[in-house]
Each structure stands twice: as structure tokens, then as C-alpha cells.
């Protein structure tokens, strides 16, 4: 058996190694390029009081979570009890980024709405949802057109960003937070950041 005739077999086995590894990966999960970079600045109207705005600087010096949610988001409901539980334990403040509350709902034709109509509708829907399922948020802000969402690279709701004392994004969780991912990943990271800060 000459060595050169084993080359195709060797190449094939390398390929199989990668394919086997690939089976354990999720090709749809895209890592964020924002990790360890300053979180994008924003200033958005608050859900509880539309006349007030909220921005990153208010959270400076704290470790906190930015959780992207919407009332039309089915997976958010699945995640919500975990957040409510987290809020009860008062480990870390959670700010809600309410993402395209009206426009994101395929059932509503948002083009037909005036801006103030859209805002009123968003507030009503979001508040209604929070009072029905519990409000774990320190506060929520309204990203009606999803522009801040784009700045954060949001591509699927829910998503959660862990932001440190200096305002840098340190971790991004894509999809609903499960009790398991909270205990095993998020909480240890939060503790670590708090200790370091």
C-alpha cells in the first residue's frame, strides 16, 4: 500500500471530523461583534413615563442586563418567569428594551398608524403584557422602529446583553434564558464582573 493512495482517505477522515463536530454546533447562532466593546449609546422614551428618556449613562458603575423583549414574542413568555425570579432575588438590575412592539407584530399594519397612535398602542400593549405576566424590569424603554435593536445587532427576540460598570458589553445570550443557562452561565459571569469592578 503506497502512501500516496491513502491521501484521499486521510482527507476524507479530516472532513468527517469536522462534520461530526459540526453536528454539535448551531449554525444559526451568530456571535456578537460587540463583545468587550462599549455598548451603543441610545436615548429612548421610557415605558412607564413617555416624557422621560433613558440612556446608557444612567447605568454607569453598575453591572446590568439589557433584555430585548416584545409582547408579540412567543419565546419571551417562555423566558419571562426566569426573569421575574431573577428580579425577585435582586442580583442584578434588568432593563427591558421593548423591541418593535407594534411594527414587529405581523398582525398589525403599522404603516397605517400615525406616530402618536403607534406610541399609544405600544404603551398599552407592553404595559398590559407586563401586568399580566409580571414586571421584572427596573424599567423598560420603547424602541418602536427597532433602530436601537439594529445598533445592538439584535436579530431574534429575546436576546440579553450583559453590560459592565464601564458600559461595555461582556456577554450576549441569544434566545430565551432558561433556569439552567441563568445558573450556569449568566450568574457566574455577573458575579465575576461585580468582583472585578
Amino acid at each position: 500500500m503506497k502512501a500516496k493512495f491513502l491521501v484521499p482517505l486521510a482527507l476524507f477522515l479530516v472532513l468527517v471530523g469536522f462534520l461530526a463536530f459540526g453536528l454539535r454546533l448551531d449554525p444559526r447562532e451568530v456571535p456578537s461583534p460587540l463583545i468587550d466593546k462599549p455598548a451603543p449609546a441610545f436615548s429612548l422614551a421610557r415605558l412607564d413615563d413617555n416624557s422621560q428618556r433613558f440612556g446608557l449613562e444612567e447605568m454607569r458603575g453598575q453591572v446590568w442586563l439589557l433584555n430585548v423583549w416584545a409582547s408579540w414574542c412567543v419565546a419571551c413568555r417562555q423566558e419571562h418567569p426566569v426573569l421575574v425570579d431573577l428580579a425577585r432575588r435582586q442580583v442584578v438590575p434588568v432593563v427591558g428594551l421593548n423591541y418593535k412592539e407594534v411594527r414587529g407584530d405581523g398582525a398589525i399594519d403599522a404603516r397605517r398608524l400615525a406616530p402618536e397612535q403607534e406610541l399609544a398602542m405600544a404603551v398599552e400593549r407592553a404595559r398590559g403584557w407586563l401586568s399580566a405576566h409580571g414586571d421584572p424590569y427596573k424599567l423598560s424603554v420603547l424602541d418602536l422602529d427597532g433602530r436601537v435593536g439594529i445598533d445592538f445587532g439584535v436579530y431574534g427576540v429575546p436576546e440579553t446583553f450583559l453590560i459592565d460598570q464601564r458600559g461595555s458589553v461582556r456577554y450576549k445570550h441569544i434566545g430565551p434564558i432558561t433556569p439552567e443557562s441563568l445558573e450556569k452561565v449568566l450568574l457566574p459571569k455577573i458575579e465575576e464582573l461585580k468582583r472585578a469592578g
Binding site: 500500500m1 484521499p8 482517505l9
Partner: peptide, 18 residues
């Protein structure tokens, strides 16, 4: 399918090398 791939292609490439 991966196991099947290894069986079919792996064996035939081995046969080829031989």
C-alpha cells in the same frame, strides 16, 4: 448518516488505497 458515510466512503477509499 455520518456513520453511514464513514462506512461506505471510508471502506471504499481504503479499498482504493489497497
Amino acid at each position: 448518516i455520518l456513520a453511514f458515510l464513514v462506512a461506505v466512503i471510508g471502506v471504499s477509499l481504503l479499498l482504493y488505497a489497497w
